[in-house]
Amino acid sequence: MKSWGFLFFKRVLSSLPSIFFILFLVFLLVRLLPGDPILALYGERGLSEDELLFYRKQWGFDKPLLIQFVIFFKKVILYFDWGVSTVSRTSVLVDLKNYLSATLELSLLALSWSFPLGYYLGKLSAQNVGTKIDKALSQITLFFYSIPVFWLGAVLVFLFAYTINIFPVSGRIDPFLRVDNITGFYLIDAFFSEKPFQSFLSACHHIILPALVLGTIPLAIIQKLTRVSTLQVSKDLYIQVARSKGLPEKKINSVHIAKNAFLPIFTSGGVVVASLISGAVLTETLFSWPGMGRWLVTSLLARDYFSVQAAVFFIGIIVVLTQALVDSFYGFIDPRVKS
């Protein structure tokens, strides 16, 4: 049997062409958009033709697109240099590190509640298929799935932060608490700060609302997936066999159904991650959360080419890697496909 590492590597390797394609497409699309990163910087003031040309030359935007792409690609491959933001003139890679950790922290926390709850509710629905509980749960998850994230977020902020004021409106931590940037996860970095306990609580307090909002769509997806796959599996013949040979219902549920029903949920990891990221764009904008989603939006609005490229590319990579991870793990979870 081949090792897990090998499988993973093979998966990643096979997705290299699509990764390259993402990179090329983003590069091209963002440059084909009307608007200019330099003019966007100067706003109402405008810029004379000479100066515009000067800056375009300085940034290398005066060369033909294909040559620009080759230069960019060469830098990425040889030095892993993703360029410099046209707005802040800081390295895109440094920005990426900060934004990525903020998004990961939020997404992981969102998953940590939505995944178990979604899974549990899905099972509950399947076990009570057709009853009031099932119908009620279906309605609730449909509600969460179809509700726009920004609306739900705005309502929650209005209720809990603005009106009752038990949560802060935005931010990651109380501005008076200073947390150094070690891992980029405030919940962890808090323990290395001057006031670890207070900082940790404050970071918790700030993350609850956005994590709640961000988790709603994955919750609905996972609930529906679990329900469907549990029902599917319970129709299988071996379940009937198990039941007819007199196995206790509990054991059938937990061993035979649950294990098999988990497979399609597991394989849809990529979909869940993608839904988290698209939700993050809105959630982060709403809560002033300095993450990938907000970075992408602001960079796009400023035509900050290098930042947009890096943001889209790494979001793409995250989805691809998750899928590769899932695929390579599949053999271990489902021994039937091992060969």
């Binding site: 009307p34 608007g35 200019d36 003019l39 100067y42 706003g43 609005l301 400023a302």
Partner: peptide, 12 residues
């Protein structure tokens, strides 16, 4: 209308 960067470069 256009989005801001487009607005700026097209009007320029």
């Amino acid at each position: 209308t256009y989005d801001w960067p487009t607005y700026l470069s097209k009007s320029r």
